[in-house]
């Protein structure tokens, strides 16, 4: 049985789970922000942006990484890549740049 199991075994996904989980954990470790806070910031930003533009929430990338500051030291920085599907009509003055 073991032989056939091996033969037809569906490729498991636990390694990519591990990669995603560790990336998520490290984001909060590196920034010192608890994951819930990060999630709240993300939701707040989305809700603000949503007033003016349509956002592709599936392709959203929201990270805290370390970026060199002016002094050359690595400090946490928020990097967000938020694809915009379209501009809402109501927003005429505000411009949201797409990164």
């Amino acid at each position: 049985m073991a032989f056939w199991d091996n033969f037809f075994k569906k490729k498991s996904d636990s390694a990519s789970n591990a990669v995603n989980r560790i990336k998520f954990v490290l984001q909060s470790d590196r920034s010192g922000l608890p994951p819930e806070t990060l999630e709240k910031i993300k939701n707040d930003i989305i809700s603000v942006l949503s007033k003016y533009v349509d956002i592709d929430t599936k392709e959203l990338d929201f990270n805290i990484t370390k970026a060199p500051s002016e002094g050359g030291e690595l400090t946490p920085a928020l990097c967000a890549n938020i694809p915009i599907k379209g501009v809402k009509r109501a927003s005429n003055n505000d411009k949201v740049s797409k990164e």
Partner: peptide, 15 residues
């Protein structure tokens, strides 16, 4: 790694 049950060294290095 091949069956997808362990992170590869590339994964670890990328992280």
């Amino acid at each position: 790694v091949k069956t997808g049950d362990m992170m590869s060294s590339e994964d670890v290095v990328e992280i």
